[in-house]
Amino acid sequence: MLGYLIRRIFSALFAILIVITVTFIFMHAIPGGPFQSEKAIPPAIKANIEARYKLDQPLHIQYVDYLSHVVRGDLGPSFKYRGQTVNGIIAERFPVSMQLGLMTFAIAIIAGVGAGIIAALYQGRIPDYVTMFFSTIGISVPSFILGTLLMYFLAFKWGLLPAAMWGTPQHVIMPAMALAGLPTAFIARLTRSSMLDVLNQDYMRTALAKGLPRWRIIWVHAVKNAIIPVITYSGPLLAAILTGSFIVENIFAIPGLGKHFVTSIYNRDYTVILGLTIFYSILLIGLNMFVDFAYTLVDPRIKLTGGKE
């Protein structure tokens, strides 16, 4: 197992290196640069700026230089937000996105798994149709429409919550709901279908035939096995929502990290693009590793270490 862990970490680092390299190539390949604007800057001034940020050096030197800083944990200065560092931007904004993301994740898991179990247990009956109807609405209404509608009713029509901004618990509610809509609905559908798969398995029938209490069977066997796809989905989901959503942050004016994932590319803010990509890929790869270990906790028969030969 230790050997596997080491191999896994090693392959993760290698994957991150590839991500950095490809992103580096892509962002330099696309037209435009960080110091371009509607009003062209005089060439001499542009040269000053490029010298300042070492953009006048050949690309391979920039690449090696960047990597040597990354290894030391320094993601460099932002080109657009002058004076700020990428580390600073992440440190300031990640806590906001994380707070919202964890809230969203909790809603999605609890509501989604709960609704899915109920729907599966009442397959083909009213509770099933009701939950599946709402979860279909949930996946077909994207967060930007859901967010706008929530704001219209909860803040504007009924005046229950502040429309936007950040800082108090009330400010978390609407964005968390808007963000949780799709994952909740998806998890509910996922849980329902994999529960049904499990409920029809022979060992379930056997357990029921043995007269074990129904709730115990459902909890111990059915939910446990049905949770595997939910766990799978949780890895990328968590990585995505912890790093913030551009759309929801924009609608609710949340000072989170999601905005920078998008604007850094529009701004060609090279260091921010790379820094955030690295941050996200570490999170994603780490969480996916965690997901694989979670599989073995839920179903000890699962082997990660080797093939079947």
């Binding site: 964890l102 950040w166 800082g167």
Partner: peptide, 28 residues
């Protein structure tokens, strides 16, 4: 399954705590 409930419980506590912090900074 206990493990799962435990993780959930920890997660919820963490969120409540974080939100608590948010309140303090927001109300100054």
């Amino acid at each position: 399954m206990k493990k799962f409930s435990l993780i959930l419980a920890i997660l919820l506590c963490a969120i409540l705590l974080l939100n608590g912090c948010g309140t303090e900074t927001g109300d100054n």
